[in-house]
Design a protein around this nucleic acid. Structure first.
Length: 198
DNA sequence: GCAGGGATTTTCT
DNA sequence: GAAAATCCCTGCG
């Protein structure tokens, strides 16, 4: 095993800004880095879902800003973290532009660094269960209300490019999960052939 | 291994 | 009052 190097440089702002479906596809392979007070955790994004600002009744922004979804209307490159079912946190990458209300839900990560901290936060036995779902990865990465509205291009929480040697997998496209409206839209993106997805 | 239900906040009807 | 971008535990095969 070669030593793991913690990524330091975030992706360019343009990668996180634009049509949410395009950003959702581009995010596959990128690394999510969180320097929390408890320690460092890093995970590779392997599954995403796009939520569009128009023509998408499943999108939280569809009915305008509220106290909960306010950060979804920030410019691309910010985090939108919200509580679902009164229990779990869901982490999104806002894709902007400011005022649009468009974002990408991150659904699964491959744990790369800080696995001991992730296990402690999650309390599970199998590493496959650490980040294989939106609520799971938010817990493992220590993401909550404090990260809602935070920049992903500077600070403690960063989206960084894949390693140069990382080989891009085939990306499967399909319907989104857990929604009742606009179920058929092909806005879910998944890396093929990994054990880390939901 | 799989189906069923509970937890608990925000929002809308 | 009910559903929601979910997860986990229980009971049963």
């Amino acid at each position: 095993m070669s030593a793991v190097r913690t990524p330091r440089r975030p992706v360019s702002a343009t990668l996180l800004r634009g049509n949410a479906a395009a950003v959702a596809r581009r995010l596959i392979g990128a690394r999510l880095v969180h320097h929390s007070p408890e320690g460092l955790t890093v995970g590779r994004i392997l599954e995403t879902e796009a939520y569009l600002s128009s023509g998408d009744p499943a999108c939280h922004a569809q009915r305008g800003p509220t106290a909960r979804n306010a950060s979804m209307f920030l410019a691309g490159g910010h985090a939108y973290v919200y509580l679902i079912y009164g229990v779990h946190q869901c982490f999104n990458v806002v894709t902007g532009p400011a005022g649009a209300g468009e974002a990408v839900l991150v659904r699964a990560l491959e744990p790369l660094e800080g696995l001991e901290l992730m296990r402690a936060r999650r309390g599970v036995t199998r590493d496959r269960d650490l980040c294989s779902g939106p609520g799971k990865l938010a817990c493992a990465m220590g993401l909550g209300p404090e990260q809602d509205g935070a920049s992903l291009l500077e600070g403690a929480l960063l989206v960084c490019p894949p390693e140069r040697h990382w080989r891009r997998p085939t990306i499967d496209v399909g319907p989104r999960v857990g929604i009742a409206k606009a179920v058929a839209l092909p806005l879910r993106f998944r890396a093929r052939g990994t054990p880390w997805c939901s």
